[in-house]
Design a protein around this nucleic acid. Structure first.
Lengths: 240, 240
DNA sequence: GAGTGGTCTAGACCACCTG
DNA sequence: AGGTGGTCTAGACCACTCG
């Protein structure tokens, strides 16, 4: 019943590890698509699918006629594409950690909500938690997440795998994210936000609203992320 | 010498027009990939490439087993993927306009620059302009753009096609963007920024740094965008 | 000229959704 | 059961970069 991991994702994972391990050094070229297709016994189409993922992750860039180069300067947190926050520590030398301000508990869906919540979801209540994410011991993100209270047995008492909601949903419930819609604003820190992120009140924060769609029918969830961008910027990269 | 437009982009352009015209209404389904491949006499691979572009533009979302649905609620400015600012007015009911605060002129590359500038570029100087972008007559974006002063004959005296740098580069010089790296911060408006965007001083602004890579060798350029997000948010959407 | 990534064809099998 | 998108194969030709 478990979905098999697609071949292109396997190769993407292998290449990511090799890049981060330094097998392919910053500023140097990856093997050509032709070579990779040979190495992993897959077609170039599948290789390109894997490389597209690495581009979105900000790890490589392509140049026609030359090759795929490993990105070197990665000072910013590549958070505009979706992956476990904790994977930042694997991709950079940054160390991440998390502290819960509010453990998961069942509430009614807050109104007005920043996205329109599906009516089917609203009847069963809402699982909510709040936490602060740290990079190198400094608070960077204030995360409020709201999930539908359906089909998640023992969720309120479960400890997250590797501090990661995404990994927990995937591993314990077979749920993974297939689509994301996000809106960004710049806002002034309220007193509570300022305390949580250890910044002055009225410091500008980057506010990211997110709606996650998953492979499970009628299971979509929401996050509100306040990001302190004084020390770390939020970045991404993509090809057209 | 002009590059032919790839088939998938042609189809992407056709479908975009049809979506915006209402041929495919919001919340309804596009024809299936199989149907589209038949309609335009292309393979499903090419259809999917076109649809991938529309997903990045925030115009459609895919659902396995169902189809590709036309996105309905688009209150935010889909600016985190790259396209002419002016296309916002085509995709929504918003009206856009631009006012130059500083017409294009040749300067030396500013240092320190927010991205590391290629040394080859720095010797020939820098074309710079500053403008404010309006949505529905309200100032929303303060744009400072820096281009290398090479291979752009008459650029300083040329009027932009449709107020669009991207269209001008493409049409007049055959240059198009292939890759973008961007960093985001939340910052307090300085007096100059506040005046330009008609907000109070110290209002939080979303600051987007961008580096654009193009199809022309050694031609990359840079923008700094300050966005007022009180009225319009900045958004995007993507599939994983 | 040799190698690279960009585009494209013509198929195939699968998991998922709906009637 | 039939249609949808997700994945994948095995090729092909092209434009671009570099020596």
């Amino acid at each position: 019943m478990q979905n098999a991991i697609p071949r292109y994702k396997e190769v993407q994972n292998i290449l990511r590890k090799q890049i981060l391990k330094g097998t392919y050094a910053s500023g140097h070229l990856l093997p050509s698509e032709h070579d990779l297709s040979h190495t992993y016994s897959i077609t170039r189409t599948t290789v390109r699918q894997a490389l597209d993922g690495l581009i979105r992750e900000g790890l490589i860039a392509k140049h026609k006629g030359k090759g795929s180069i490993v990105i070197s300067d990665r000072k910013s947190l590549a958070l505009l594409h979706i992956k476990p926050f904790t994977s930042i520590s694997a991709e950079t030398s940054f160390k991440t950690s998390s502290v819960f301000l509010q453990k998961t508990k069942i509430i009614t869906w807050p109104k007005p909500f920043f996205f329109h919540v599906n009516h089917d979801l609203s009847v069963t209540g809402c699982l909510h938690f709040e936490r602060v994410r740290y990079v190198n011991m400094e608070p960077v993100i204030l995360d409020n997440t709201y999930l539908p209270n359906v089909n998640l047995p023992r969720f309120t008492i479960r400890k997250f795998i590797n501090d990661s909601l995404f990994e927990t949903l995937q591993t314990a419930y077979g749920i993974h994210i297939v689509n994301v819609v996000q809106d960004l604003r710049a806002e002034s820190a309220t007193e509570g936000q300022a305390n949580a992120l250890k910044v002055n009140i009225n410091t500008p924060l980057l506010h990211i609203y997110r709606k996650y769609l998953t492979n499970k029918k009628n299971f979509e969830f929401y996050s509100s992320l306040y990001c302190s961008t004084q020390k770390y910027t939020i970045g991404n990269q993509f090809s057209i």
